[in-house]
Write a protein that binds this DNA or RNA. Structure first.
Length: 571
RNA sequence: GCUCCAGUAGCUCAGUUGGAUAGAGCAACGGCCUUCUAAGCCGUAGGUCGAGCGUUCGAAUCGCCCCUGGGGCACCA
């Protein structure tokens, strides 16, 4: 397709006697929304200044001057546009052959070969159950991880656990005060989080409690054994729970180095900033001043303990050395935009430019409930565990209803239920706020995960019925010119877009672009499915269509797998 | 107050980086299963693209200003 576009650009340049470079023309060539306007279009409006004539005239004249190359069927001049119609039979053949040959590597590239990318995502604060708010960073981060892998990068996924900070001073205070009122072992995370809510409330009423918490954290930082033991307990019970959730979601990390990991690596940050003479005293704290009239970035608090920003800076320093990263991507909600602006600015004093310019904050919108902001304190929270269970139960009910004889119902219900949640979470642009509507989240028809999975299942089902196997097929003898209905041509062109889509989604850190594309592929296939029977008496037709069905399956499965959604063969 | 982000059909969202008649899903209404899974497909209806001004051959898209909602603005993360 790209070659033909280039060919068209060359033709136009020729017809213009090279008054405009073909590169420049190529940039302007677009794909018309309406098929009646051909496969490619070139708007002639900007030529009218150069040629001193009306766009309509120019289009008319150019149309007659253009010498048609092979594979270009005709040119039309319509209201200032040059519309090109191409002969897609060769193109179709090439696309299908390439997909079959490359299989799930179709659409991948090697442009990132030898380069490292760090993706920091999920990163829950320990001692709290995983709730719906954590789902977004987890699945967006994972998708970005997979997208860059497709571009050939060596990607390192880091779960930067929120396992350090004043909150643990507070939790220790609460634990020591209230632990005897609970049977913590029964459900550690929920109970710890309840204790945290209680002590937070108390600290709000009584400032001395918060002072104790600050002291506790200071002791923890200084290595107090009793507190460290408690802290380790909090971390262990949290991880046990998180591993279970990550397992259900199919999420893996290359490192679980959280904030605490950097406890002994912050002195170096302070030392470097001090040497660079950017660290100054202000109101008892050590800070780096950034813009005029703007609060500075605090590096050391007035009580001598560190803060979030210090740990993030230590992590940047460490990751630059350890991973020699091309990019370091942080996936958090947009609440932290300002924080990362500051940290990235300070980091310029800490690491070489090649690292500091690779720092990227990927900000996503807030997750809210209809009843307001999600808050453990008010009980206004949806735990991920519960939501996943509901979704799987719903999937099972539907299976029981539609396909009662299905084998492995449990496994498939899990794939569909979890797939629905993940796919739904990657459907809209990440920057938009989400108000959770459970009816919407647990919807299985329309533009949803189950719809796409169902489409994939249909491809498998056809191929099984047709007893299709690549081994019994000689690609060179298949006559692909037989695939000439509108549905077939549209579907094949759609399949071919995956490479561009992956690249764009990665560049924009926007998995939703891939999500929408997969829906488009599924919709094209469904139209084809309804209009073009695959299993027919005509062996040539059946063979060619089977290859198309097989190729569609490859693309859907690949796309879903990048998004972290599994594909059942039957459902 | 300063600053960042969002505003497109009743609802949830796309919109190829400035192009031709602004597209989907849900909800509503109507049609399609004795033939590859109807978790599907087809059709009907639904729009002053938050408001205004500007930039130009052309604006949902770029600029300015205003309105609405949300975020952030030093010892929380």
């Amino acid at each position: 397709m790209e070659e033909i576009k280039q060919l068209i650009a060359n033709c136009i340049a020729q017809a213009l006697d090279k008054k405009v470079e073909s590169e420049e023309i190529l940039q302007k060539i677009e794909i018309p929304k309406n098929k009646e306007n051909g496969d490619f279009a070139y708007p002639c409006f900007n030529l009218s200044k150069i040629l001193k004539s009306s766009p309509l005239n120019i289009a008319d004249i150019l149309k007659d001057k253009i010498i048609l190359e092979k594979n270009i069927l005709k040119v039309e001049a319509v209201s200032g546009y040059l519309n090109f119609f191409i002969d897609s039979t060769n193109v179709i053949q090439d696309i299908l052959k390439e997909i079959i040959e490359k299989n799930d590597c179709f659409g991948s590239s090697l442009e990132g070969k030898g380069k490292n990318i760090v993706v920091d995502y999920s990163s829950p604060n320990i001692a709290k159950p995983f709730h719906l708010g954590h789902l977004r960073t987890t699945i967006i981060g994972r998708a970005i991880y997979n997208l860059y892998k497709e571009l050939g990068y060596n990607v390192i996924g880091i779960n930067y656990l929120g396992d350090w900070g004043r909150q643990f001073g507070l939790l220790i205070e609460g634990y020591n005060r209230f632990k005897n009122e609970y049977e913590i072992e029964k459900d550690p995370l929920h109970i710890l989080s309840e204790i945290y809510v209680r002590i937070t409330k108390l600290a709000k009423e009584d400032e001395s409690v918060m002072d104790l918490a600050r002291e506790n954290f200071k002791k923890l930082e200084e290595g107090n054994e009793e507190y460290l033991k408690l802290w380790k307990y909090f971390k262990d019970v949290s991880l046990k729970e998180y591993y279970r959730i990550y397992d259900i979601l199919g999420c893996k990390f290359d490192s679980y180095n959280g904030e605490a990991f950097y406890n002994d690596k912050m002195d170096e940050v302070i030392k470097i900033l001090d040497e660079k003479k950017v660290l100054v005293d202000s109101e008892g704290a050590k800070v780096v001043k950034l813009k005029e009239n703007e609060p500075p970035c605090i590096i050391v608090k007035s009580n001598g303990s560190t803060i979030y920003a210090t740990r993030d800076l230590a992590a940047i320093l460490y990751r630059a050395k350890q991973y020699d990263f091309e990019k370091a991507i942080y996936v958090t909600s947009y609440e932290q935009i300002h924080h990362f602006e500051q940290v990235f600015e300070v980091a310029k004093n800490l690491v070489e430019e090649k690292y500091s310019k690779g720092l990227v904050h990927v900000a996503y919108g807030m997750v809210r409930l209809k009843t307001g902001k999600m808050s453990t304190r008010d009980g206004n929270v949806i735990y991920l565990q519960d939501l996943i269970e509901d979704s799987i139960i719903k999937a099972k009910k539907i299976i029981e209803n539609k396909n009662p004889s299905l084998k492995n119902k449990e496994k498939i219900a899990k794939q569909v239920g979890v797939g629905a949640l993940v796919f739904n979470g990657l459907k809209t642009s990440k920057i938009k706020d989400v108000v959770v509507d459970l009816d919407e989240v647990l919807r299985f028809d329309g533009e949803t995960g189950p719809y796409v999975q169902y489409t994939y299942v249909r491809t498998k089902s056809i191929l099984e019925k047709a007893k299709f196997s690549l081994k019994n097929i000689d690609m060179d003898t298949i006559d692909f010119t037989i695939l000439n209905t509108e549905e077939e041509v549209e579907l094949i062109k759609e399949l071919n877009k995956i490479k561009k889509v992956i690249k764009k989604a990665a560049q924009e850190y926007e998995p939703a672009i891939l999500n929408r594309y997969i829906i488009d592929v599924a919709t094209c296939f469904s139209k084809f499915y309804n209009e073009c029977p695959v299993i027919t008496n005509n062996k040539c037709l059946t063979d060619a269509r089977c290859v198309l069905v097989y190729a569609t399956g490859i693309i859907i499965k690949k796309g879903l797998s990048i998004l972290g959604v599994e594909c059942p063969d039957k459902m």
